[in-house]
């Protein structure tokens, strides 16, 4: 089990390029996050929890789908930790698993109406499923 967590952690760090040890725990990311209140775990917690071996809690949390990918935390992080990239990595590791899509193609297509731009549907396809 421990090995499993270690493998998940290593993968998340590798594909995100994030080094949690660069974090000085200032909380700037969470101070700037527009989706803060919708998240159970906040950007700074993604960094801290992955470092502390708690990546599975993050994978099971809806927080991974609340990130807007606005990159405010990536831009403003004074240490270049770029938490948003880690949120994305954890989300990918969740949906890359068998039958772990948050929404499937039909669910997303059902949202289409005369105003919803293609861009929005396509983004959902990429963010919620594999």
């Amino acid at each position: 089990m421990e090995n499993h967590v270690q493998m998940l952690t290593e993968t998340a760090l590798r594909i995100s390029g994030v080094n949690p040890q660069k974090c000085m725990k200032c909380g700037k990311c969470s101070g700037t996050c527009p989706s803060y209140d919708a998240m159970e775990y906040h950007p700074h917690q993604f960094v801290a929890m992955v470092e502390k071996g708690q990546i599975e809690k993050l994978m099971e949390s809806d927080s991974i789908y609340m990130c807007l990918s606005c990159m405010a935390c990536v831009e403003r992080c004074p240490r270049g930790v770029e938490p948003g990239k880690l949120v994305e990595a954890v989300r990918l590791m969740k949906i890359r698993q068998q039958d772990q899509n948050r929404k499937n193609g039909n669910d997303i297509a059902a949202f289409a109406d005369e105003n919803v731009p293609q861009q929005l549907l396509m983004a959902a396809m990429r963010k919620y499923r594999k």
Binding site: P34, S35, Y65, M66, L68, K103, F111
Partner: peptide
């Protein structure tokens, strides 16, 4: 230069509305 709520609007209208 802040976020409009982006694609999360699809399932979390609330967040987009706030933004």
């Amino acid at each position: 230069n802040e976020c409009c709520g982006a694609y999360v609007a699809l399932e979390n209208k609330n967040c987009a509305e706030t933004q």
